[in-house]
Structure formats: structure tokens, C-alpha cells
Write a protein that binds this DNA or RNA. Structure first.
Lengths: 153, 153
DNA sequence: GCCGTACGCCGCAAAATCTGCGGCAGACTG
DNA sequence: CAGTCTGCCGCAGATTTTGCGGCGTACGGC
């Protein structure tokens, strides 16, 4: 659920800070501060504020799926059967390898991205999905781009 | 391009460390160390090793697209026309709001995820894509799940 | 069995960073 | 013009990071 509270809008400095911390979330406050031309105290208070307002929702490491042993990466589109919408959450709970799930308009009701160690592993997950909707599975050759949301106009 | 160097495989401690730093990449070495039952020195050397081996590819902040002013989130599937494959990189260069691009098997050759401030903004980008392939655009109602790759079996 | 080497972890001390707080300047209000 | 509020600075103590020496275990050669 998206938080729609109305808070102070982001100023240019906030946006620069967001881009800096998207580039390297383990950077020190001094380094982040350099990017926004502020001292460490002000940088810290802005960072805390962005976190508390829900603009920054967390700090995470980007990890190579291949290095973790996932040789397959699939995109699955699904049209849910009948009234089985609430079953989606169950499936997500059962399969942490479903790393992304979007509810969308159009022909398919859901888009999934799945990581799998091999075909059997992938089929184990897709067959579970197929119990609640009709699916189309595409394999990913290459992640061409995966980048942060642009924060500055 | 995926790095396919053969390096030492990940042990259980590496995988625990990966999960810890996926949970909070701004955590201190002491905190991360607690999760893997090691001191700060050992934690640091393992973290550095994972980074150097390309297992951890970076540390980044998760940011709410809505808070940045993106009211629309779209998924676009595209079948490239003729020999226009190399034009995809150009389009990605022109539009930072295309936050994800996957090259896939099947009917569509590419999957994109696009953030837009409004319909006009979205159309500006999709019409650029439409110049190199036939596209299908779905809007995202909700990001149901977006989580890190599972590192432990 | 016994040495030599390599690897991974510990612990230390110095440097860097974080944290909480007081103070100050500019904006806005009555 | 005084009062208040907001946002930034800078300081000092606490915490964290960093680089390095040392130790124990595993492994291979002899």
C-alpha cells in the first residue's frame, strides 16, 4: 500500500541526496554531504527525515542472482481464474524465489519475476501459479537495465 | 554481461551475510557480524570479498516512486521490428524513467518497466519505444512484492 | 609423523565516522 | 520589533572502521 500522506515536498537538495544514497547506500554521511553541499549533521537529519516520511524505504545490497546459483530467470504473466485473487499472497509466501510481483491492467492480471536453479525448480513454482490462473512463461536472456528511479528532473 | 569466473563457492556464512546486508545495507560491521557470528574484521573481509567477486554488485537505497512524484507505473512488452535491436540502448539512454529492461524469449523480445509523472509523460516514452517495435502497455495497480533474491537454501 | 604454507579469524590501536546537543542566522508572524 | 520556528553548523564523546600482527587449524610434501 502506498502512503499518500501529504508531507513537505522534496526540494532539490533532498533529490540530490536521494540520488547519492541510491548510488551508494554505504557511503558515509560526510561523503553524502559532499554531494549535497551540507555538513554531516544536516545530511543526517535530511536522511532521517526522508526515511521517516517513507520516501526512502530501506537500504539494501544489490546481489547477482547468477552468483547465488540461479541459472534461470523467468517472467510469468498470469490471468487469475475466477475468484482466486487471494491465493496470490499464499503463493508468494510459499516461494521466496518469486522476487517481484506486480498487479496490472490488461490481459494478464499479474506479472511475476522468478529466479530458479534449474528447469525442475522453475516448474515447481510455475505449476503452483498455474493452479490459480493461466500463465505465460518467458525466460530472461539478459537484464539489460535495472536502475534506480530518477530523483532529479 | 554476467561474470562467469569460477571462484570459491559461497558458504553458509556468506549467504547469511548476504541476507543481512540485503535487509539493511547501512548496518554497521558489528551488526552484520552478529548475524553471522563473526567479529568485525572477519565480517569486513567477507563483505569485501563478496563485492570483489561480483556477488554483491552495490549498495542502494530503496525509494518510493510515488514519493518522487511518479503517479504512473507501466509494464511494456515489445517485439522489435526488423534489425532495430541496437536502438534499444539508445532509448534507454534517452529515458532514465525506464527503470528496468529485460531481454526475453517468447512473443515479446523485451520487457520494460517505466515510471511516469502523468499520461503525457508516459506517452512520450512509449511512443519512442513504438518507433522500434510493436508494444503492449499495461499499467501497474500495485507492486505486490519486490524482494531480494533468497540467498539461503 | 612432521614441517611449511595458506587461510580465516581475532583483537588491538589509530583514524574516521556517527550522534546528540547547543548555538546561530534567516524567515515568518503578530 | 520581539518572538518563534526552521535548518544548518560545529563541537565533543561514543561508536565504527581500518590496517595489521598474531594465532590456530587444515592441507600438502617429504
Amino acid at each position: 500500500m502506498t502512503d499518500t500522506r501529504t508531507t513537505t515536498p522534496l526540494d532539490e537538495t533532498d533529490r540530490l541526496l536521494i540520488e547519492a544514497v541510491q548510488r551508494d547506500s554505504r557511503a558515509s554521511l560526510a561523503e553524502l554531504g559532499k554531494a549535497i553541499h551540507l555538513g554531516t549533521s544536516a545530511t543526517r537529519s535530511r536522511l532521517r527525515s526522508l526515511e521517516e516520511r517513507g520516501v526512502i524505504t530501506g537500504h539494501t545490497a544489490r546481489v547477482s542472482a547468477a552468483a547465488l546459483g540461479y541459472t534461470l530467470h523467468a517472467v510469468v504473466r498470469m490471468k487469475v481464474h475466477g475468484a482466486l485473487y487471494d491465493r496470490v499472497a499464499d503463493v508468494l509466501g510459499r516461494h521466496p524465489q518469486i522476487v517481484r510481483c506486480l498487479r496490472v491492467t490488461g490481459e494478464s492480471c499479474y506479472h511475476f519475476e522468478i529466479l530458479a536453479t534449474d528447469m525442475a525448480d522453475l516448474e515447481r513454482i510455475t505449476s503452483d501459479l498455474a493452479r490459480i490462473g493461466s500463465i505465460t512463461t518467458d525466460l530472461v536472456y539478459e537484464v539489460v537495465a535495472d536502475r534506480p528511479s530518477p530523483a532529479t528532473r
